[in-house]
């Protein structure tokens, strides 16, 4: 997919583990893992909002468009 999820980069910058983030955002680890590995097909605005709030970042820090 042309949309790349850079959640792992942002998580490394904020030094937060998947477990911690899943607790903060209130999403299962499996779903978060799907998002991190790029398996997810879509993301809800509410989820994006929670992640941005927890990681104190902008949606653009997590999502990136690459022309393939």
């Amino acid at each position: 997919m042309a949309i790349i999820v850079n959640l792992d980069v942002m998580m490394a910058k904020r030094k937060i583990s998947l477990n911690e983030l899943s607790e903060k955002v209130n999403i299962t680890q499996a779903n978060l893992s799907n998002l991190k590995t790029g398996k997810a097909k879509a993301i809800r605005f509410s989820t994006l909002e929670k992640i941005c709030e927890s990681l104190d970042c902008q949606p653009a820090d997590i999502l990136e468009y690459r022309n393939e």
């Binding site: 799907n34 997810a40 097909k41 879509a42 993301i43 989820t47």
Partner: peptide
């Protein structure tokens, strides 16, 4: 269903 399951 697949799309719904893979929506985070």
């Amino acid at each position: 269903k697949e799309e719904n399951d893979l929506t985070v």
